[in-house]
Amino acid sequence: MTVLRVFNNNVVLARDASGDEVILTGRGLGFQAKAGSPVDPSKVIRVFVPSDGRDPDHLAQLLAGVPPEMIQLVSRTLPELDDAEQVSHSATLVIALADHLNFATHRAARGLTVEYPLRAEVSHLYPDELRQARALLSAVNQHLEQPLPDSEEVALALHLVNAGMASGDLTFTYRMTGVIHQLVSVIEAEYGLDLGHDSVSVGRFITHLRYLFVRVSQHQQLVSESSPISDAIRSTYPDATIVAERLAGIIELRLGDELTADEVSYLALHVARIAEGR
């Protein structure tokens, strides 16, 4: 591998044998290294491969501001979380979590505690990610002289949600969380229900919405013309279709894109399942 840019003594941007740009960490890896010089493989501790079009320079800059010990702690802990295998190898996630935890430790040292406003929504909409975040925070706290407060699990959970959606930053995740909460509230009000996250139908609905929002953001919605299956859903569940059209209106206002007929029909199917308790 060849050094492309040195960020500090422990972080360099390099080009690997395949010609891809990678971020390398290791104590003393960047010391006296210059652009164009070969990488000393004996000093490389971790190789980060940017994905989903992430800017390698930006990720490396973030990484350069985080102590290597925090990177190693997150890298070691994340793969051990239940059901987190699909995101545990994400360079972006490891860097984002380590950067957040590092900043949180500095806040804690100054006696500053942040209460995140989305705790209720995160607990309701993302119970799996919150459970993983709680386990991650517990594992990290075992290695800190001053443990971080429980409130940090909310932010960690949102990072895990964000990684699962392959979004560039938390802005999209915050917006998605608010919209999902609003949509669930509309269904509760329409049918007089008090929906819990342990409901299978609600869980399916939330998962469907998360991927719907990704399709909308990537302009890859289901076919624009109503399909036979779509027509059948609308015919079978006319009341749920009316509610789904209300939900579609909210999504269109919040995300700025009109939903296709098929997307609305599949929303109706999920609404019907929730209303029927299935």
Rank of each mutant, 00 (worst) to 15 (best):
A232C: 09
R54G: 13
F103R: 07
A139T: 11
V216C: 03
A60W: 03
A135P: 04
V39Y: 07
F7S: 04
A108C: 09
T113V: 15
N8A: 10
A14Y: 06
L255K: 00
V87C: 04
V22N: 08
D83T: 11
T177S: 06
I229K: 06
Q61G: 13
A268Y: 05
L130M: 10
I180K: 07
V154I: 08
Q182Y: 06
H89I: 06
L112M: 14
V243A: 03
R204M: 11
V94E: 14
A14C: 06
Q142G: 15
G249V: 08
E85S: 08
I206V: 15
A133R: 03
E21Y: 09
E152N: 00
E129P: 05
L73N: 10
I229G: 13
E21P: 09
A17R: 12
I251S: 05
V22C: 12
T171E: 13
G196P: 02
L193K: 03
V94T: 14
I233R: 10
T171D: 14
H58A: 13
I229M: 12
V179Y: 07
Y266H: 13
L267Y: 05
R234Y: 09
Q61H: 13
E263G: 03
L195A: 04
Q182M: 08
D239F: 11
R131I: 11
G164W: 08
A33H: 01
R15A: 15
V271L: 12
V44S: 05
V49E: 10
T260K: 01
T2D: 15
D198G: 12
V264H: 01
T236I: 11
A272P: 11
Q132R: 05
A189D: 06
L148N: 02
T177M: 08
E21S: 15
N8D: 15
M165W: 06
S151I: 03
G178P: 07
V87P: 04
V223M: 14
D20V: 09
G65Y: 04
V3G: 05
I206G: 01
V154Y: 00
V3S: 02
I23H: 01
L195V: 04
D16K: 00
V11F: 09
